[in-house]
């Protein structure tokens, strides 16, 4: 070979800021958004936007959709989609809630009668999510139905079951054992348990994706399913596990949200799947499969959360929120694609 036939660099060379920005367009958007919001609030003469209480509130209100994004991220990397997430949230919340009602309070409409310890109820919530996930995964893996269709089916059926189970009534008066998981404050109200749980989940997600064989398999399946199979990846089993993870995250989001608000509701989680998918998408997780990072996904969640609360803070009508959200989703994906195309041309 000639002297420089194989140029091998460590891959750790110093990158310019431009290169970093184009690789992490969502963080650029996030920072830009924060700056704009700060300026806007100052001009409007309101209080400074970037206060601890504000940020902490944003985090708290985004835990539900955020967990969904952490779940669906795995699915999207594997080149799938999960539309059933919002329905799973409602189903998991009413079933776990039914086991955690405060029997002493008799004015409630929905009466289950059976009460278990709050922790068991929480596990039941996760289990419900996991089971629906297993169903989704099995449908996708073994019947080869397109994930869009399979989860469209469970989306509809899941919500139906939740409504049937409660006859459309809220499951209220959840007991203390149950609610404490999502609503404990530490450091004198400065740190909330659900935010803590979210951070823990993000770490676990990062760990799975980067440090385990399962994680590597998810990327390979999304990148080229047939090639992954030939290289020894058990595609079907992995798919089932991927959807089960996503379902479990929905279950977790359900019990935390129900716990925080003190009641479960069959209409809980309506359209949350779209927020979760939007956050993941803004975070650079491509529907083409095979790529995506936890850090990007978190940026996506924060972008949506900050946008929402900042617009409320500025007193902008919630109708505008949806419009701005739509624009941001498209802009983020365009920026991400441009990066890919830049490498081609």
């Amino acid at each position: 070979m000639t002297e420089n036939t194989h140029v091998i660099k460590s891959g750790k060379e110093k990158k310019s800021f431009g290169a970093w920005a184009s690789d992490n367009s969502m963080w650029v958007i996030l920072i830009g958004l924060i700056v704009i919001m700060c300026i806007a609030t100052l001009i409007k003469g309101g209080a400074f936007f970037l206060t601890y209480t504000n940020i902490s509130n944003i985090f708290q209100s985004e835990v539900g959709p955020g967990l969904l994004a952490m779940g669906v991220m795995f699915v999207i990397i594997s080149k799938g989609i999960d539309l059933s997430m919002g329905s799973v949230v409602s189903l998991a919340s009413v079933i776990s809630g039914a086991f955690a009602q405060d029997v002493a309070y008799s004015a409630r409409i929905f009466k289950s009668g059976l009460v278990v310890h709050g922790f068991i109820a929480l596990i039941i919530g996760l289990a419900v999510g996991c089971i629906v996930g297993l169903i989704n995964g099995s449908l996708v893996a073994y019947t080869k139905i397109h994930p869009f269709i399979a989860t469209l089916g469970t989306m509809s059926a899941g919500r139906g079951f939740a409504l049937l189970f409660t006859q459309g009534n809220p499951v209220s008066q959840l007991n203390k054992d149950f609610t404490q998981f999502g609503a404990t404050n530490y450091l004198g109200g400065k740190l909330h348990s659900n935010v803590l749980i979210f951070i823990l989940i993000a770490l676990i997600a990062w760990f799975i994706l980067n440090q385990t064989r399962f994680g590597r398999n998810i990327y390979a399946i999304g990148g080229n399913q047939e090639a992954a199979r030939v290289a020894g990846v058990k595609v079907e089993k992995n798919l089932v596990a991927i959807y089960a993870w996503c379902g479990t995250m929905c279950g977790l989001a359900a019990v935390l949200t129900a716990g925080r608000t003190g009641s479960a509701n069959p209409t809980l989680g309506l359209n949350w799947e779209l927020d979760g998918i939007a956050a993941a998408t803004i975070g650079g997780i491509s529907q083409n499969g095979g790529v995506g990072k936890v850090s990007g996904c978190i940026a996506g969640i924060l972008i949506l959360g900050i946008l929402k609360s900042a617009l409320i803070y500025l007193g902008v009508s919630s109708y505008y929120q949806e419009i701005v959200k739509g624009i941001i989703i498209v802009v983020a994906v365009v920026l991400d694609n441009r990066k890919m195309m830049g490498k081609q041309a």
Partner: peptide
Amino acid sequence: KTGIVPVSSVLDNISIANIKSYV
């Protein structure tokens, strides 16, 4: 069709079939 995982790195593409040895 059955060989490369196009978006994955060269490294991941080399190690994928033997990944169980690194667990």
